[in-house]
């Protein structure tokens, strides 16, 4: 599966469009990590635990998008975009979407 943010795949041509493929996941924070984070909120700096958590979740969103694209029969997803929104206190939605295509 080829994933790009471009409108096609360099070196290949799109032979078929399958429409939108999307994947999303909503993750809540870990209480232990949250306590660490609120300590870090006092001194500043990177919240590594959150970075990892969100990275994992985004990976999952991408995997779901890829899975959906595979079901459609695509071998590439082009023009991928990401979005993040916090839906509730302590939970975030990570969303990935793109266009499923077949390239040759």
């Amino acid at each position: 599966m080829i994933l790009t943010t471009l409108e096609g795949v360099p070196g290949k041509t799109i032979v078929e469009h399958y429409g939108l493929a999307q994947g999303s996941t909503i993750r809540a924070k870990h209480i232990g990590k949250d306590i660490m984070a609120s300590l870090k909120n006092l001194v500043g700096g990177e919240l590594k635990a959150y970075t990892e958590l969100l990275q994992e979740s985004r990976q999952e969103a991408v995997e779901r998008m890829v899975q959906q694209a595979e079901e459609l029969g695509a071998n590439a997803v082009v023009n991928i975009r990401f979005a993040t929104s916090s839906v509730a206190q302590g939970a975030a939605e990570l969303f990935a979407y793109g266009t499923a295509v077949k390239v040759e």
Partner: peptide, 11 residues
Amino acid sequence: AQLFVGSVVIS
């Protein structure tokens, strides 16, 4: 071609 993502949470 491949997708690359970089992310960071800063407090």
